[in-house]
């Protein structure tokens, strides 16, 4: 049995944590893998912490990622790093909006990032931007991820999201190289 990939998305209510986990889960379905995804709903609308587990591979059992076994932790709001870091395995990868910061461009925090007109990232599409950044590390065809984006967002948002996804991809590639 091949290894299961474990991704945790975390953030605050209203940031689109659940939406981005839906996109990734769908992408893995398109790739022909077994997928399980789990989160707790209910209180997320009221600004509380939200997190969602996505697991994919040949065969996935539990829908929940055991603590300390996440391969990737994608945190949309930096205040949530401290409360989720323990989910990551040793050697696991943490991805935050920091991946987009660039001192030379004067982008030192999320506010700078979303205010900057030269990049397509906004408060609303940060989730998909980070998915792009994550995607360069995943063993999933890009076509499947883009299919996931299209399947989970209304058509009028496709263009903007495909653009910001690619922006995430290049930002992450730049960091990796």
């Amino acid at each position: 049995m091949s290894k299961v990939t474990n991704v945790v998305f975390a953030g605050l209510g209203g940031q689109g944590v659940l939406k981005v986990s839906d996109i990734l889960a769908d992408a893995a379905v398109h790739a022909g893998l077994d997928v399980k995804k789990s989160e707790l709903h209910g209180m997320s609308q009221r600004g509380g912490s939200v997190s969602s587990d996505v697991r994919f591979g040949d065969e996935v059992f539990s829908p929940m990622i055991p603590e300390g076994e996440a391969d990737y932790l994608v945190v949309l709001d930096e205040t949530q790093v401290d409360v989720t870091r323990h989910l990551l395995r040793e050697g696991g990868v943490l991805i935050t909006p920091e991946v987009f910061y660039d001192e030379d461009q004067g982008i030192e925090d999320v506010d700078d990032l979303v205010a900057d007109e030269d990049n397509p990232v906004t408060e609303r599409n940060l989730n998909v931007a980070l998915l792009g950044a994550l995607s360069v590390r995943l063993d999933l065809p890009e076509s499947c991820l883009l299919e996931g984006v299209r399947a989970n967002l209304p058509e009028r948002l496709h263009e903007m999201n495909l653009e910001v996804f690619q922006y995430g991809v290049s930002a992450a590639r730049k960091r990796l190289s």
């Binding site: 605050l12 209180m43 997320s44 509380g48 912490s49 929940m64 055991p66 603590e67 205040t79």
Partner: peptide, 25 residues
């Protein structure tokens, strides 16, 4: 959860780690 099932199987009754609390609603 998987961890708790492992503990039950092992008969482990030591205190469980308390996860850090996120923002309450």
């Amino acid at each position: 959860s998987v961890q708790r099932v492992r503990r039950i199987l092992a008969g482990d009754t030591s205190a469980e780690p308390t996860p850090p609390r996120g923002n309450p609603p």
